[in-house]
């Protein structure tokens, strides 16, 4: 039984003092640990976690993201992934190894405004993120609606072992694909989409509130949560 103290914090606030292990969103000066973001600090016996409540998406290798084509040239597509930089999807990744800019038209595959589900295939602090759509389920999104949330809320929308996303899918009848960058694709009837959207918006606006799961179940009329 671990004891966790939870505390709302803003940047600059002292979270704790002592020899804790910290990961992200915090700053250690001497043995003092300060928050660098708005969020919920969880102080355990020897580690501290800060779950931030806002901020833009920082690409990580192998993340699945939802992007939008905003430009293309002979070498590939520029894709807005709601991050610091647009990502790049190389032509060869889509058209195959023998792609020739003289023969093949990139626009025939993906054109301005098209959305895609892609994996981050390469990223470090010196290069713009590189995308790949080779993989199961990846590629151009042919149908559906998208809704945007803060990337920091994505874990809440997925829930513990996918509990929340399963609840939304079964409660709304809508199929969801979640991009780690905070864009969620919903495929289903107009009614199911609007039901899923209100559940997602609720999680977005009340991610910090204690009775969240029950509230989501209420909105989806799923009855009492079975946790």
């Amino acid at each position: 039984m671990s004891e966790i103290k939870r505390k709302y914090v803003i940047p600059g606030e002292l979270i704790a003092q002592g020899s804790y292990g910290i990961r992200g969103n915090m700053l250690k000066i001497g043995d003092k640990i300060y928050a660098t973001r708005i969020g919920m600090a969880e102080v355990g016996t020897d580690t501290i976690r800060l779950i931030s409540l806002n901020g833009s998406y920082m690409p990580r290798l192998d993340d699945i993201v939802v992007g939008k084509v905003i430009n293309f040239n002979a070498f590939g597509w520029q894709v807005d992934i709601k991050s610091w930089f647009p990502a790049f999807l190389p032509a060869a990744n889509v058209m195959g190894r023998d792609y020739s800019s003289a023969r093949d038209s990139l626009a025939s595959q993906l054109t301005l405004g098209d959305q895609l589900l892609a994996a981050i295939a390469g990223y470090d602090r010196t290069r713009d993120p590189m995308l790949s759509i080779s993989g199961p389920g990846l590629g151009k999104i042919a149908e559906g609606n998208t809704v945007k949330v803060s990337p920091s809320k994505v874990p809440r929308i997925i829930g513990k072992k996918g509990a929340m996303i399963n609840a939304i899918e079964s409660g709304s009848g809508c199929r969801l694909s979640i991009g780690q960058n905070g864009i969620i694709v919903m495929v289903g009837s107009a009614e199911s989409v609007s039901k899923a959207t209100s559940a997602i918006n609720l999680i977005e606006s009340e991610a910090h509130s204690p009775g969240l799961t029950q509230k989501v179940h209420d909105i989806l009329s799923l009855g009492d949560k079975s946790e």
């Binding site: 940047p11 600059g12 973001r37």
Partner: peptide
Amino acid sequence: LADAGINMRDI
């Protein structure tokens, strides 16, 4: 800046 979620040492 804090609302934009940018890492800050302090307000």
